[in-house]
Design a protein around this nucleic acid. Structure first.
Lengths: 211, 211
DNA sequence: ATAATAGTGTCTATGAGACAGTATAGC
DNA sequence: GCTATACTGTCTCATAGACACTATTAT
């Protein structure tokens, strides 16, 4: 019954979808390919994995290089291993999501660019199977926001409830009522002694997660 | 900013957690290691990936070899890439779940053995990081049963509602009320013209999924 | 008839959805 | 004052939990 299979080493890389809520859109950092194949098309940031680093560490290293952050949070999205996913070589990609809290990363200053996930999904300019990864990203976040704490990863340690609500709304792709949203998360957060000022309206209170 | 990284190919393999509901337990096929390192310890079935097959195909091939099934359903669990996850070589494992509908696979006849997930998690006899994979399996299924159709993968195309309920109960690790369970899934299934006979009690109707 | 499990009807408690209202900032 | 958004109270309706009841089979 056992079948003989040729044992060859296959190249492996890590792709990282650097992801943030920008305005009222879910966005991800993409790069224009500088070389053939598919020169000029958009691709997800990627790196090789060193012999001496774990997959998680490779993903975090890439994010730190791009953002300059000391600490980054990543989660696996999935591993993409179709034979012809890249035209030339056989490369298996372990895709990670990196969560960037809103308004903490100046992409322009870092020399990279965010793209709206919904635009990428409609685009014809995305390289390899990277559109599939972006779709999987969107679907995974949408599914998980309802029953996990993933939304907190898109805000800083201290945040306002309107901001946190916006994260939920963007990921769920629908508006929520303030009352109902707050009722649902009130047990998970606690007020700090701060509030946001400077806007021409009632200031929002600053909260943090309850331990 | 970019860092130079030694480019070496790392070995990759596919692990498959062949999973079924057996009685009122979640179980998975494990094998006793015949060779060092960790000879005698239990490990998840695994295979190399051929240059010409996708990761999914490698996982399905392994399951077909073991079960003799023509058609198998698999889903990715995650990819495990710590540097020292195996003592000798650097091997990255892409772990898959294979769903075996209840009472369709005679493990003894196939020369393999099911182990209860809860026992494995308590055991000191599991090789490498395979206990982590088993834990992840359990947690993923428990989380997903509530909001996905994963429970249907553990029953055949035609099934009884008591069986489907048992799948939910085992994965959720709690008893459910018949009425409430049926109310929740009634819209997803339709009765066939069959029923189960032979038991000393009222026969259960046979259902199938609604399209 | 008895035992055992399948299947149903329905009360109640909880939580989600909707909306109206009040509060507080800048201008 | 006006405008804009933060925040709160509460009604209603849908769904989940609990439990009592009936149905049908083998022995």
């Amino acid at each position: 019954m056992a079948k003989k299979v040729k044992l060859e080493k296959i190249a492996i890389e890590v792709n990282v979808l650097i992801t943030a809520i920008v305005g009222d859109k879910l966005e991800v950092v993409m790069a224009k390919r500088a070389e053939a194949p598919l020169k000029g098309k958009l691709e997800i940031l990627n790196t090789n994995v060193a012999k001496t680093e774990s997959l998680d560490d490779a993903a975090k290293r890439l994010v730190k290089e791009v953002t300059g952050f000391k600490k980054v949070e990543v989660a696996q999205l999935g591993t993409y291993g179709d034979v012809k996913r890249k035209p030339d070589d056989r490369v298996i990609s372990v895709a990670y999501i990196a969560f960037i809290p809103m308004n903490t990363f100046d992409a322009k200053a870092a020399g990279v660019e965010f793209y709206a996930v919904d635009d990428l999904i409609k685009s014809k300019n995305v390289a390899f199977d990277n559109k599939k990864m972006v779709e999987d990203l969107k679907n995974k976040l949408k599914a998980e926001v309802a029953y996990t704490d993933v939304a907190f990863k898109f805000v800083e340690e201290e945040f306002t409830l309107p901001d946190l609500q916006r994260v939920h709304e963007v990921l769920l792709e629908k508006k929520l009522f303030k009352t109902n949203f707050r009722r649902k998360i009130v047990d998970l957060v606690e007020q700090t002694e701060f509030q946001m000022v400077g806007d021409a309206h009632r200031p929002s209170r600053v909260y943090k997660r309850k331990k």
